[in-house]
């Protein structure tokens, strides 16, 4: 019945395009396949295929004598990954990523809060572009800017000299672990650049979360006698937390995998990204490089799972 009806209603289209279009209308599955086919094939073959091939290689090992890859299933590479030296790299990177995330949240929160609650009209646009331009502008140029800033003859030393605070900078640099010969070869330098480059990714999710908090909740809190500190602690912060967690996905993941920033600004001690790069390049040890890449994937998997449980994806 319905079939007969459609056949009579549909006009006879003279052109081929019309007939194709009718066919697709009557067979939505074919239309779906036509739409989804190319992107899924592209991503599936090129991206997932490569990723899978890489992960597979982490179960191979490298022959110590010939330097060739031994194509037999083994967990030896993972044993090597957990050796002391390599484990140090993992711990160092995770600690750095966590510190960067924490400080990014602290710096991003006031910007997001001001933009969400006080900025109106033109200022709203200024704040939005003020975050978007640094976020999207060239990654390498941003690092380069910090090379200029952190250089011994650069603006930071100049500012400290002018303020007669050079002793403070020297004192900081003489501290163990976070200090060094100059800012551009210390962990402090690496940390500053990481925070600068990834912090903008934190602002927009927090802002989105804050914008969804009804203003009368804050009023109710103060009507009931809450001080601003108490309101922040018990109302604002818990409601903004999904946004913070959503932003932290970016800062954490991006710091975890970066190998260019610590290479340009920082000490000679490696981070995960640098270890991957060194293993696949100069060392030619693809299995170990592949095993190293599994670390951020697993950590991010756990992180995303936790974030999802905290409702962070609704804030994205």
């Amino acid at each position: 019945m319905t079939l007969a009806a459609t056949q009579t209603i549909l006009p006879n289209r003279p052109r081929l395009s019309g007939r194709i279009s009718d066919f697709l209308w009557k067979h939505p599955q074919v239309l779906l396949a036509v739409l989804l086919g190319p992107p899924v094939l592209w991503l599936g073959i090129i991206y997932l295929g490569s990723l899978f091939a890489l992960l597979l290689q982490s179960f191979f090992s490298i022959d110590d004598f010939s330097g060739l890859i031994n194509y037999e299933f083994t967990l030896a590479t993972y044993r090597q990954l957990l050796s002391d030296a390599n484990f140090d790299i993992i711990v160092r990177t995770v600690l750095m990523a966590a510190t960067v995330t924490l400080f990014s949240a602290v710096i991003a929160f006031p910007i997001a809060y001001y933009a969400a609650r006080y900025a109106r009209g033109k200022w709203k646009a200024v704040f939005y572009l003020g975050v978007m331009l640094p976020l999207w502008s060239s990654y390498l140029v941003k690092i380069y800017a910090w090379k200029l800033i952190l250089a011994k003859e650069g603006i930071l030393t100049w500012a400290f000299t002018k303020l007669n605070l050079l002793w403070l900078l020297d004192g900081w640099l003489s501290l163990p672990v976070i200090g060094g010969n100059s800012l551009s070869v210390s962990y402090t330098g690496t940390f500053l650049v990481f925070v600068y480059v990834w912090m903008p990714f934190m602002i927009l999710p927090i802002q989105a979360a804050l914008e969804r908090i009804p203003a009368n909740l804050i009023e109710a809190s103060s009507d009931l006698g809450g001080t601003p500190q108490q309101t922040f602690r018990h109302v604002l912060f818990p409601l903004a937390l999904p946004g913070i967690v959503a932003g932290s996905i970016f800062t954490f993941s991006l710091t975890l995998g970066d190998y260019i920033i610590p290479q340009i600004v920082g000490s000679s001690r490696l981070f995960i990204g640098q270890a991957v790069y060194a293993q696949q390049g100069t060392a030619g040890n693809i299995p170990l490089a592949a095993a190293f890449t599994v670390v951020p994937i697993v950590i991010m998997g756990l992180y995303l799972w936790m974030a999802k449980r905290m409702g962070a994806f609704d804030a994205l």
Binding site: A53, L54, Q57, L254, L256, G257, G273, Q280, T293, M300
Partner: peptide
């Protein structure tokens, strides 16, 4: 874009 760029890069390179 969610996974670190180095993973995409090295995966493509080895493929």
């Amino acid at each position: 874009i969610a996974l670190p760029g180095i993973i995409t890069g090295i995966a493509l390179r080895s493929a």
